[in-house]
Design a binder for these strands. Structure first.
Lengths: 204, 204
DNA sequence: TGTACATCAGTGAACGCGCGTTCACTGATGTAC
DNA sequence: TGTACATCAGTGAACGCGCGTTCACTGATGTAC
């Protein structure tokens, strides 16, 4: 074998295919995840993929998981950047950062964002990411728990609080990507997001 | 021509194709809109469509408009069913009905709902439907204006109020269709929606 | 340490499908005289 | 009222594409003896 040739066995073809498919999703969303193209990018024949995934849906599912994890990771980063103070002000700021991170991810990586929610219809939505770390929903829930602990949110209003919070930021992302805000300027979007977070906070 | 044969000229092929495509969208969302299948269903050769639409995108766009109109229509119906009283209670109930209708549409006709927001990327989101009637966003705006008139919402809080309201219901639809609520029971969804509407109301 | 052999992870070719779109054509319609 | 002809709205066949998936196959690897 001359230098530069790849060995016959790839070594970690499964992950390489997922990585390539993640890049496809980034560029074009879930529909852009195509077995043949992923194989092409890895430099392997297009049927080699079937040694590692029973069908295209399995590859798609793996990519969904990665996208969901990436979203969770950004949320955790943005929250962690604000420290761990239990003051009322701090817990509120961290809740806001949770929502801001969600929207930031959606706008920065719309392909991944869409893919994260393109879970095949025969599967359940997962609360936990594949590697067992908390998913976006659980991260949000933890922040809401923090509000209760800090005395910002009365305990009797805690149940179901995830719903308005998640719906708000998720819907805002839709507004900005595919809805009436999609031709808006960054300033307009920023103002809208601030108004949204204010309203969620008051509403809780 | 024997009885039962269709005439050579269809008469209103354009609308017939749109109708067929609307039905495709209902069954499978925007990706299910396929020129050949729509033609097939109308009973016409698949290239006849090109007498009426320059390309598939034009057909898709026409269907988007119809879906958006259908959503607007349901919202108007649900609002109208609550009468025209200007009492504080009435304007609030109508705002809630606006959001409820939005979610009702999304859950009852997910294919249409998704298609409504699948406007091709090179086009602007329309506030007004093709026939000039108000679109969902304008209907919502009118309800919010009603809140101000009735003295429920202070005028200085009116600007941008569409954002949290729309984002909330739009996001709730996403939650229920593709998110953590998609395996929830009807009761759970109902409770979640009530909580959401409460929060939007308080937040405004 | 060396060798036979089972097993695993790739390859190349092909099947069958459905799509969007274009071409040259024809049947139907309506208008000018 | 009748007829020639332009125009419009369809048809049938074909092009070219890319996809998911399967088949029989081969090269590489590792294990038993």
């Amino acid at each position: 074998m001359t230098a530069g040739d790849r060995p016959y066995h790839h070594g970690n073809l499964r992950q390489a295919l997922v990585d390539a498919a993640v890049e496809l999703a980034r560029e074009g969303g879930p529909d852009a995840i195509v077995v043949r193209e992923a194989s092409r990018r890895v430099g392997v024949s297009h049927n080699a993929a079937y040694r590692h995934f029973p069908d295209r849906g399995a590859l798609l599912e793996a990519v969904c998981d990665e996208c969901m994890s990436a979203l969770a990771l950004l949320m955790e980063d943005r929250i962690a950047a604000l420290g761990t103070s239990r003051s009322k002000r701090a817990v509120v700021l961290r809740l806001r950062a949770t929502g801001q991170a969600y929207v930031e991810f959606a706008l920065a990586e719309p392909g991944w964002f869409r893919t994260a929610f393109a879970v095949p219809p025969d599967r359940h939505y997962r609360l936990v990411t594949r590697d067992g770390r908390p998913g976006p929903y659980q991260i949000l829930a933890a922040q809401l728990d923090g509000l209760v602990t800090a005395g910002v949110l009365p305990a009797e209003r805690r149940p179901l609080a995830e719903i308005p919070a998640w719906a708000g930021v998720h819907g805002f992302a839709g507004l900005a990507l595919d809805g009436p805000l999609r031709d808006a300027s960054a300033q307009e979007r920023e103002a809208g997001l601030t108004r949204l977070l204010d309203n969620i906070e008051r509403g809780l």
